[in-house]
């Protein structure tokens, strides 16, 4: 997920805070960002110092500049950062954040 390719945001880009849904699931958390006009090549997702950052440059414009969606979330150490998966479809970026081994519920059978 952490692609080291150069991701540049145009200087005249207009920053927009995208709407998100955060959904709790049994195996982790799913975050869905609305990023219309952006595709897999124009989206950058990174995790640094426990902060998940999403940037996406859209083909849509506002006030003469391209729209750049930006949002960041502080992750708890219950998230397995190495297992995060991302996909985009119809202008919605979906991130699946699996629970780390620490957060997994281990049921112990009493003998």
């Amino acid at each position: 997920m952490e692609d080291k390719k150069c991701f540049s945001v145009p200087e005249n880009a207009v920053e927009v805070r995208p709407a998100v849904d955060v959904i709790e699931e049994d195996c982790g958390v799913k975050i869905m960002f609305e990023v219309p006009g952006a595709n897999s090549g124009s989206i950058d997702v990174s995790v640094e110092d426990g902060v998940l950052t999403m940037r996406a440059v859209s083909s849509l414009t506002r006030n003469g500049g391209p729209i750049c969606y930006y949002r960041a979330f502080q992750l708890s150490d219950m998230v397995d950062v190495s297992g995060i998966q991302a996909k985009t479809q119809d202008g919605v970026l979906t991130l699946c954040l699996p629970k780390s081994e620490r957060a997994t519920v281990h049921k112990i059978k009493v003998e």
Partner: peptide
């Protein structure tokens, strides 16, 4: 779904 944040 179990929403923690629902903005969409």
């Amino acid at each position: 779904k179990r929403y923690v944040i629902r903005e969409r």
